[in-house]
Each structure stands twice: as C-alpha cells, then as structure tokens.
Amino acid sequence: MTGTNDPTNDEMLVETDVSDGLSAAESSVTDDADIVIESEDINVWYGDDHALTDISMEIPENSVTAMIGPSGCGKSTFLRCINRMNDLIDVARVEGNLTLRGKNVYDDDVDPVALRRRVGMVFQKPNPFPKSIYDNVVYGLKIQGIDGDYDQIVEESLKRAALWDEVKDRLHESGLDLSGGQQQRLCIARAIATDPEVLLMDEPASALDPVATSQIEDLVEELAEDYTVVIVTHNMQQAARISDKTAVFLTGGELVEFDDTQKIFENPESQRVEDYITGKFG
C-alpha cells in the first residue's frame, strides 16, 4: 500500500468514518482503553533512504503517547505518517497499514485533506499565520466550513490552551506579536478549535524556554483528558513526566520498545533502550 495520493484530489474526499470504527473487542486489544491508532508494519523511504522499518504499535484513546529517540531515528517521520503529512514530500514513500479507528488511512479512497481535519498537528517551531489571534483560531473552522458561534469557540479553545487570560483583550492583534510560548499555545488552540480526534505534537516545546515548556507540558496532560495525544520529544524527562505510553525509536528507524512509560523508564526490556535512557548513548 503506497501513500502517494494527490492531497488536492477532491474527488477522493471520503470521510474516514470514525463513529463506525472497530470496537475494542474487534481490534483484539487487551487494554481497557479503546485503540485509536493502530500501525502495522509501517515502512517509510525517502528516496533510497529507508527511514522507518516495520513500525507496529497501538495508540490508546485519551492518553499521551510519547515517542522518544535520538535525532534522525524516525520518530517525527512516524508522526507524519499518522496524518499523511509525508505525502507532501515528493520523494517519501510509505508502505504498511495505519488505521484510525479501524479505517486504514493509506487506503486509496482516503483523502489526506479529510484525514488531516480529524488529526490535528502542532509543529516544532511555533507557526501562527500572519493573521490576528482570532483569525488564527477560526482558520480551521473556516476552511472546513464548520458553522457555529465563532466567538464562543475562540474563547473555549484559547481557554483550553491556557492562553485566554493573556490575550482576551487583544484578540484582533497579530498572532506574531505574541511570545514564542504564547505562539505555541495559540497553535494548540488553533489545532483543537476544530475538535480533532487526535492531536499530533512534533517536539512542541523544543524551541521554547523552560517556563513556556512547563506550561506546554501541563497543557498536554490536560488535553489528554479529551484528546488522544501523540507527542514526539527529544527530552526524556519530558516524556517521563507527561506520557502514559512511551515508544523508543533508535537509530536506523526501528521501534525498539513500546510500553507503559513507567515500565520503559524503570525496567525496560531491551538493553539498548536502557542504555539510551540512562544516557550511555544517543
């Protein structure tokens, strides 16, 4: 299965039917939580470079799943498989199955644009649009044609992103006038305004100072009450603090271990993971 559909092809706009997804029993999961994302033998190539090898994992609902590993281990690449952002890279090729509530997002009938409306994303570098704070938050609603009380959605989204009190008097000023940490929380507000199923975060705090980082971490834990959060981080302490499950990717693009965060940090199965966690390499 290759993921090379043209992201602009509106003919293929088929909504991934989330309400009709597989139940926990059907997807052979032993945990109590429903599995939202299931990856099965995902392989990614950038040209001839084999970036990810046979990645299989299950991401449970309303939890934080962290992906850690050294630079270049493919953790961000895997994150971008979930919402098919890799489609935007000409030389990228994805093989394998990755299901969102039972629907394989690499099926030919899946429109990546529709998929990305279900799976929000927050990037490493804060990237608010050069528009007002208000317009940043409502952007997704507008392009997705979602009606509703925008004022109320803006207020709610900014409150959930813990930004409301700081910006409520200047909603119509440019989002670029905010500090880096505020910009990142604005990006989070923008991502949750459309109420996605899943929130992907690609090292969301790596460009921020320690205070802003700690705000983002608190926020991620709160968001996990309502969203399934998948977060890439190069900061092991951060993963240990905020995540329920941790996936350790190591050089060569393989998933070495995936388990409860506590287990990974206290008693990992693999010697390589232990060496990485304890700082012997990486």
Binding site: D10, R116, M121, I143, R190
Partner: peptide, 14 residues
C-alpha cells in the same frame, strides 16, 4: 512552516 500549518489543519492546496 506556514504551509505545513495549513496542510496540518486540513487545508487544500487552494
């Protein structure tokens, strides 16, 4: 990054 932000929100190329 701005284009990525847009595509990440489910924006079309247009």
């Amino acid at each position: 990054e701005l284009r990525q932000a847009g595509y990440g929100m489910g924006a079309t190329k247009f």
